[in-house]
Simulated assay, not measured.
Amino acid sequence: MGTGSPPDTGEETRIHRAVSNDGTQIAGRVHGNGLPLVLVHAGLGDGVLDWGAAAPFLSDRFTCYLMSTRGRGSSDDHPTQSVARCVEDVTAFVESIGEPVGLAGGSGGALFALGAAARSEAVAAVAACDPLAFETLSEEDEARLHDAVERMAELAAADELVEAARDWMTEWTTDREMAALSESGYLEACATYVPVLLQLLDQTDDLSPTDPSTLQQITAPVLILYGSQSDATWPWFTESMRYIDEHVADTVVREIDGAGHMGAWVEPEAYADEIVEFFDERLS
């Protein structure tokens, strides 16, 4: 169990850069050698924070690109932080590699990955780890999400960014996952992205990567990974998984025993094992 940066192996730091549609430079750390695998972070993180712990279990088989959307990691910032722009960031990054790639994303990052897969033939296969679908939100769910955003905004306005990150993550984690994130220093590290996430949540647009018409455009095979305990945190999580499975043509669904919604962060080896098996068959 763990989160954070990959261990120091003496490997020279490699950065891959691409330019999004509006000119924003998007960057990602590169680890390993092999077939290309682009890894997309969730709402409150960056490529290294969210996939650093899984990278050692993937980089002996794949060239792992731990990309960050605008305003995260080494990517340039931009005042526009909409879902549409983030999907464009992922699409531009994927296409800049110059060959068919595997694409994986966790939570909100799975949303961006699915959106890019619907747009680009460069995506050969997708792993959607604990994906979200806002189309499945009930009125009660919407109220819960709204309250969480309001609390995060109030704490951020008081310059309590770490508490804002901690409060936000309570909506997404099991107690076990929250303890792991707290002990690893993840909450302190991702607190800097609270303002960026608030911008993203505030700048609504017409694009939904999980609209049925968009999901039906995905021709690449999709692995849906979800934690067996995610339903205990919020039934919306498993409803989202079932919804995406219903609307994407070619899916494989795998459950990670004992994991919650944040399993890809705190159970990286279990998620990596499924990702390796899936992409080994579809990228080679």
Results as ranks from 00 to 15, higher is better:
E163H: 06
L114F: 08
F279C: 04
E255T: 15
D89E: 08
S284N: 11
L145N: 10
D89C: 03
S213N: 14
A179M: 07
I244Y: 04
T91R: 05
Q216M: 10
L283A: 00
G109Y: 06
E274N: 06
N21T: 15
V30I: 00
E246G: 05
S284K: 07
A164H: 10
A124I: 01
S184G: 14
G10P: 10
S184T: 11
V101S: 12
M1T: 11
F57W: 03
E171A: 13
D8I: 05
R242G: 12
G105E: 03
D141G: 10
A42C: 07
A179V: 13
R61T: 03
L103Y: 04
D273V: 00
E183T: 06
Y243D: 15
V196L: 14
S75P: 13
S240G: 10
Y186W: 11
I26H: 11
A128I: 11
D273H: 04
A117P: 14
R85C: 07
D245A: 15
A116Y: 02
D141S: 06
R254T: 12
D50M: 08
L215S: 09
P6S: 10
E154Q: 14
A27E: 09
G4Q: 08
P209G: 06
H16G: 15
D22C: 10
T251H: 11
V162H: 06
Y193K: 04
L145G: 10
Y186K: 12
I97L: 10
D60T: 04
M178F: 10
D159A: 09
T214H: 11
E177Q: 08
N33F: 00
V253K: 11
C86H: 06
I275C: 01
R242S: 13
S213Y: 06
V48C: 09
L137Y: 13
G28T: 02
A55F: 00
C86T: 00
I15V: 12
S107K: 11
T251W: 06
E95C: 01
V276E: 07
L197V: 15
E11C: 12
T214F: 02
I15E: 01
S184A: 14
A259D: 09
E11H: 15
G108C: 07
P221G: 09
I26G: 06
H247G: 15
A272H: 03
R85V: 03
D46M: 01
A270V: 00
C64L: 00
V101T: 14
P56I: 02
D22R: 15
L223D: 12
G32F: 00
P100H: 03
E95K: 04
E95F: 00
A191R: 11
N21P: 04
M262K: 04
G260W: 03
I244V: 14
G227N: 05
A116D: 09
E246L: 08
V101G: 13
P235R: 08
M152A: 14
A55M: 00
G43T: 03
D22Y: 04
H78D: 09
L225D: 13
E277V: 01
D76S: 08
P131D: 02
A125T: 10
